[in-house]
Simulated scan of single mutants.
Amino acid sequence: MNVGTDLLAPFMPPGKRIHQAEDETATIIWSCEVSVDGKDVFRIGRESWEPGWSTRRFALRHAYVQPEHEATDKSYVYSDKGAVATVRCTEKGGDRDLFLVVKAGENTAGEEAMEKFVIAYREEFLKSDPCADER
């Protein structure tokens, strides 16, 4: 996803070496872990899940994100340490929904930075026709 580095930078602690590792498994469609000097500091993941789950419920039960705030339209929840956003594929004829999970390490940038990141990431993700594989 083409999300500006300015949105990710607040989560990066000082260091000399940044490493990015991507993974795809059966239960997690995709994930990317970012580490600085060997320490994991940021993770983004996408998970396909059965319909009917609210963003808040998924965040608590499966993403282990403790949301402190929720968008008015309930499309995302967030705190200073993590966020979950929902993409409703079932509304477009799919049989599963997608959940975008973002987690920050100990050097968190705060709630405002997390909200900006998850909003931008979700908007960029929606441009890619994400539900095509769920139909």
Rank of each mutant, 00 (worst) to 15 (best):
Asn2Arg: 10
Val3Phe: 01
Leu7Ser: 01
Leu7Phe: 04
Leu7Asp: 02
Leu8Trp: 11
Ala9Val: 05
Met12Asn: 08
Pro13His: 08
Gly15Ser: 05
Gly15Gln: 04
Lys16Asp: 10
Arg17Leu: 15
Arg17Met: 13
Ile18Gln: 11
Ile18Met: 13
Glu22Leu: 10
Asp23Glu: 14
Asp23Asn: 15
Thr27Trp: 13
Thr27Lys: 14
Thr27Asp: 15
Thr27Val: 15
Ile28His: 12
Ile28Met: 12
Trp30Gln: 06
Trp30Lys: 10
Ser31Val: 03
Ser31Lys: 05
Val36Asn: 02
Val36Phe: 01
Asp37Gln: 06
Gly38His: 09
Gly38Cys: 08
Asp40Pro: 15
Asp40Gly: 11
Val41Glu: 07
Val41Ile: 10
Phe42Gly: 01
Arg46Phe: 14
Pro51Phe: 06
Pro51Ile: 05
Gly52Met: 01
Trp53Gln: 11
Trp53Arg: 10
Ser54Cys: 05
Thr55Lys: 00
Arg56Cys: 06
Ala59Lys: 03
Leu60Trp: 10
Arg61Tyr: 07
Arg61Ser: 09
Tyr64Leu: 08
Tyr64Arg: 09
Val65Asp: 02
Gln66Ala: 10
Gln66Glu: 13
Pro67Ala: 02
Glu70Val: 04
Ala71Arg: 04
Ser75Ala: 01
Tyr76Val: 03
Val77Ala: 03
Lys81Glu: 06
Gly82Ile: 06
Ala83Ile: 03
Ala85Cys: 00
Ala85Met: 01
Thr86Asn: 04
Arg88Tyr: 13
Arg88Leu: 11
Cys89Val: 01
Glu91His: 02
Glu91Trp: 00
Lys92Phe: 11
Lys92Ile: 10
Gly94Arg: 02
Gly94Glu: 01
Asp95Val: 09
Asp95Arg: 12
Asp95Asn: 11
Arg96Met: 04
Leu100Arg: 02
Val102Tyr: 03
Gly105Trp: 05
Asn107His: 14
Thr108Asp: 12
Thr108Arg: 11
Gly110Gln: 10
Glu111Asp: 13
Glu112Trp: 03
Met114Gln: 10
Met114Phe: 06
Glu115Asp: 01
Lys116Gln: 13
Ala120Cys: 08
Ala120Gln: 09
Tyr121Gly: 00
Tyr121Glu: 04
Arg122Gln: 11
Glu123Asp: 13
Glu123Tyr: 10
Glu123Trp: 06
Glu123Pro: 06
Glu124Arg: 08
Leu126Phe: 11
Lys127Pro: 12
Asp129Pro: 09
Asp129Leu: 10
Cys131Arg: 14
Ala132Phe: 13
Ala132His: 12
Glu134Trp: 09
Arg135Glu: 15
